[in-house]
Simulated assay, not measured.
Amino acid sequence: MTQSATASAGVQSVDRALTVLAILARCGESGVTDLARELGVHKSTVFRLVATLEAHGMVEQHEERGKYRLGVGVLRLAGSTSARLDVVQEARPITRALAAETGETVNIAILSEQSALYIDQAAGDSALQPHNWVGRRIPLHATSNGKVLLSELDPEELSARVPRLPAYTAATTTSSKRLRDELTQVRELGYAVAVDELEVGLTAVAAPIRDAHGDLVASLSVSGPSFRLESERIEALAPRVVQAATGVSDRLGAASPPRR
Rank of each mutant, 00 (worst) to 15 (best):
E235P: 00
S126C: 11
S219K: 08
E230N: 12
D15L: 15
S231Q: 15
V11I: 15
I94T: 11
V14P: 03
S223P: 09
E235N: 14
E199F: 10
E63D: 14
L140H: 08
L35C: 02
V59Y: 05
K177D: 02
Q61C: 14
E156T: 13
Q61K: 15
R187G: 06
A22V: 09
V134Q: 02
T172E: 00
V74R: 07
R92G: 06
S176Y: 05
G190A: 07
D196C: 10
S221Q: 02
V14S: 04
P258K: 12
L39M: 12
V41Y: 00
G66H: 11
L229Q: 07
V186H: 08
M1E: 14
I94W: 02
R187N: 14
M58I: 05
G146W: 08
E199G: 10
N145V: 11
R251Q: 12
S151K: 04
Y68R: 10
G224K: 01
F227A: 04
R210M: 06
T172V: 05
R233A: 02
A22H: 15
A25G: 13
V88M: 09
H42W: 10
R240H: 11
L53I: 02
S8M: 15
R233F: 11
H62P: 00
R137D: 09
A255T: 14
G66M: 12
L153E: 06
F47R: 14
L149S: 04
A206M: 00
R233W: 14
D215W: 05
L111E: 01
A116F: 02
L70H: 09
G247W: 00
L189G: 00
L117G: 00
L150V: 08
L216G: 03
L229Y: 06
I138W: 09
N107I: 06
D196V: 03
A255G: 15
L189D: 15
Y168I: 04
G135E: 13
H62D: 15
H62L: 13
S176L: 01
A122W: 01
L229E: 03
R260Q: 13
A212Y: 10
D154P: 12
D250P: 05
T203A: 06
A194F: 01
A109P: 07
A160W: 08
E157M: 14
R136D: 01
V248H: 04
I108T: 02
K177R: 15
G57M: 07
V222A: 02
G57S: 12
S219C: 03
A17P: 05
S221D: 07
T203W: 06
V134N: 08
V11G: 05
S226H: 10
L128Q: 07
T33N: 13
R210F: 06
L18D: 12
L153Y: 03
N107D: 14
V242F: 10
L165F: 05
E232N: 10
A91K: 08
V72T: 13
E156C: 09
L198P: 09
